[in-house]
């Protein structure tokens, strides 16, 4: 199911403000790609352009192309809704639907797509919760509110919700930043497992995390505040962390490691 993403000459704007400038990159299927860089460098903004979530914010627009297996996500005949169904997303803070049970949360995407059969839903929910390593913890209380889970469990619930619709790409926007170390570890293990089936892109502030989970790493930076963010360098994670080509990348990484 996993598919590749090719970004070419992408500029991202909010109103007249240019947030990201001139990014081109390729993201391989069945890999984990990490985006790192200082705050405000546009990595989250760029991530959101991969499923057109930036359009949710007023004034958000792009120039350039983002192609999923060769099809431009921004061509006129493509519906952003269809894009988001194909490219799933997990957010910084766990955001289960507060009024829904655990079961209903995971089933939400399928129900939106018209799946009504109980058996199909039940099977998909179990599969997704297992996929998110949450099944054993919640199987006895599927009808309880999702908001009653711990932060780490909620985040895995959100991952289950995202993978229930079988997307081809899974975007994660700092998925562990609101979690404790143990929950973080659980999510990282999970990422490692599900990369067999999905193309995963993760934004992280945590350098060690990028080193641990990703196959490839992209470093974003910005020249100064108010200037647009740019892609500085992208390559295999091992190379970026041991022997980066660009001086800025090295400064950033070594600075973080002290």
């Amino acid at each position: 199911m996993a598919q590749r993403i090719d970004v070419k000459d992408l500029n991202v704007y909010y109103g007249s403000f240019k947030a990201v400038e001139d990014v081109s990159m390729s993201i391989e299927p069945r890999t984990v790609t990490a985006f790192i860089g200082p705050s405000g460098c546009g990595k989250s903004t760029f991530l959101r352009t991969l499923n057109r979530m930036h359009e949710v914010i007023a004034g958000g627009r792009v120039e350039g192309t983002v192609a999923l297996n060769g099809r431009d996500l921004y061509s006129k005949d493509i519906d952003p809704v269809a894009v988001r169904r194909t490219v799933g997303m997990v957010f910084q803070r766990p955001n289960p639907f507060p009024t829904m049970s655990i079961f209903d949360n995971v089933a939400a995407g399928l129900r939106l797509n018209g799946v009504k059969t109980k058996a199909v839903l039940a099977e998909a929910v179990e599969r997704s919760l297992k996929g998110a390593n949450l099944w054993n913890e919640v199987k006895d209380r599927l009808d309880k509110p999702g908001a009653g889970l711990s932060g780490g469990q909620q985040q895995r619930l959100c991952i289950a919700r995202a993978i229930a619709v079988e997307p081809q790409v899974l975007l994660m926007d700092e998925p562990c930043s609101a979690l404790d170390p143990i929950s973080t570890l659980a999510i990282e293990d999970l990422i490692d497992e599900i990369k067999q089936q999905y193309t995963i892109v993760i934004v992280t502030h945590n350098m060690q995390q990028a080193a641990r989970v990703s196959d490839r790493t992209a470093f974003f930076n910005l020249a100064a505040t108010g200037k647009p963010g740019r892609l500085i360098e992208m390559g295999d994670t091992a190379k970026i962390f041991s022997n980066p080509t660009e001086k800025a990348t090295e400064d950033y990484i070594s600075g973080r490691f002290g």
Binding site: I78, D79, R85, L110, A119, V120
Partner: peptide
């Protein structure tokens, strides 16, 4: 009803 519908199949428009 058995097969989980291939929801994330592609980019074609909405139903």
């Amino acid at each position: 009803p058995s097969a989980v519908p291939s929801v994330g199949g592609g980019l074609s428009g909405l139903s």
